[in-house]
Write a protein that binds this DNA or RNA. Structure first.
Lengths: 199, 199
DNA sequence: CCATAGAATTAAACACTGTACAATAAATAA
DNA sequence: TTATTTATTGTACAGTGTTTAATTCTATGG
C-alpha cells in the first residue's frame, strides 16, 4: 500500500521499460498491456501510471529505447565504410536487418499512434530520430558534392523509400506479388537512385 | 431474439460494412468497435459475429471496400494519360491523394494486423491488391521497353517507395525533419528513378 | 392449418483492456 | 515525536472482443 523503497524511482522506470520491451518483443505490440508489464515487475498498474503519467508516455519511452538500439546497431560499422556507396548501402541494409531481427519492437515504433490531436512528440524524443536521420544525411553528402540541402532531400527520399520497402515486405503485404527479397529491392533502389551497381 | 426479416442477409452485410467504413472514416481505426457498428445499424454484436464469423473477417471486408474505391479513384483518369511519364505520375500522386483524403480508411489497411500466424489473406481479397498493382505494372511497361519481368520489379520498387513516402509524411513522422511536402518527394523519386523531370 | 425443424437475434456472461481515485503505509521533515 | 509528503495498492468504472444459451421468428412438411 505504500512506499516500498526496494527500488529507486530510476530503477523502477528502468525495470518497467525493460519489461515493456521484452513483452513487445515476445508477444507483439497488440498483446502489450500495462497490467502485463506491472505483473512482470511485481508491481501494480497504478505504479506505472505514477511513473509515466499516461500509457502513451510509457510506450514512448519503450520506443525511444528501440530507436537507441537501432542507432547503435546501424552506426556500429559506419567508421569502417568510408566509401560513399558502401556507407549508404550499409545504412539501408542495416535498417532492414534491424527491422527484420526486431520486428515486433520496430513495428511498435509505427503501430503506436498518439491520441487524437496531440501529434506532438516530447522534446526529448525528437533528437533520437534526428540523429538517426543525420547519419543518412552524412552518408549521402558526397553523392551531392557537399550540398547539404540536396543531401537532406535525398536522405529523406531514401529513408522513406527504404522504410516503405521494409514495411511492406515484413508485413507480408508484398507477398501477394512475390517480392519477399527486400534486400534485392533496396539494391535496386540505390542503384537507380544513386546511379551505381553494388560491388 | 430471432429473425426479423427486415433485411436480407446481403442487405445486412452491406449495412454493416457501410457503417464500419463510416465509423473508421470518422473516428479512426483505433476507435472502431464491433459494438459501435452494431448500434449504428440497430443490431447487436452477436449479429455481426453471425454474419462475418470473426471481427478480422469483418475488417477485411471493410478494407476490401477501401481497396475498391482506391482502385476506382486511381484508375479513373488512366485512359486519358497515354504518355508513360504522365501515367505513372498520375498513379503515384493519385495514391497519395487518396491516402490524404481518406486517411483513416487508408491507414486501416495497414493498421489491421491479422491474428498470430494466420498471415494468409482470404482468396477473394488478394485480387483486389493485384489488380491495383497491375495498374502500376502497366504504367511502367514502356519505361522498360515491354520487359514484363523488369516492369514487375520496377513497379514493386516504385509502389513500396511511394507507400513509404505516404506513410511517413501522413503519420507526421517526417515532420521532425520538415518534409511535409510529400508530392514534391514523389516527383523527386520519379525523376531520379525514371530519369525525367515532371512537365 | 398447424406442428416442427431450422436459422436469426438477443441478452448475458467472461476475461480482458485503460484509467481514475480514495485509502493506506512508509519515508522524510519539523 | 508529530506532521507532511509520497509511493503503492485495491477497487471501481466503462469499455473491449468473444462465446453461448435462450429465445422468437420464418419456412417447411404433413
Amino acid at each position: 500500500m505504500a512506499r516500498r523503497s526496494e527500488h529507486t524511482r530510476e530503477e523502477l522506470t528502468g525495470m518497467a521499460i525493460d519489461a515493456g520491451c521484452e513483452m513487445i518483443a515476445e508477444k507483439g505490440f497488440q498483446q502489450f498491456s500495462a497490467r502485463g508489464v506491472a505483473a512482470k515487475i511485481g508491481y501494480t498498474v497504478g505504479t506505472l501510471y505514477h511513473l509515466f503519467g499516461t500509457l502513451d508516455q510509457f510506450i514512448l519511452h519503450i520506443n525511444a529505447r528501440t530507436l537507441d538500439s537501432m542507432y547503435d546497431e546501424v552506426a556500429k560499422g559506419v567508421a569502417k565504410k568510408p566509401a560513399a556507396g558502401q556507407l549508404i548501402h550499409h545504412l539501408a541494409h542495416g535498417y532492414l536487418a534491424f527491422a527484420k531481427k526486431n520486428y515486433n519492437l520496430w513495428s511498435a515504433l509505427f503501430e503506436h499512434r498518439l491520441e487524437d490531436g496531440s501529434t506532438e512528440v516530447p522534446d526529448w524524443y525528437a533528437p533520437k530520430m534526428t540523429r538517426l536521420f543525420g547519419l543518412i544525411e552524412e552518408s549521402v553528402l558526397p553523392q551531392v558534392k557537399g550540398d547539404r540541402k540536396k543531401a537532406a532531400r535525398l536522405a529523406r527520399l531514401l529513408w522513406a523509400s527504404v522504410h516503405g520497402i521494409t514495411t511492406l515486405s515484413l508485413a507480408g503485404k508484398l507477398e501477394i506479388v512475390q517480392a519477399d527479397h527486400a534486400d534485392k529491392m533496396i539494391d535496386d533502389l540505390l542503384e537507380v537512385t544513386l546511379g551505381y551497381k553494388k560491388k
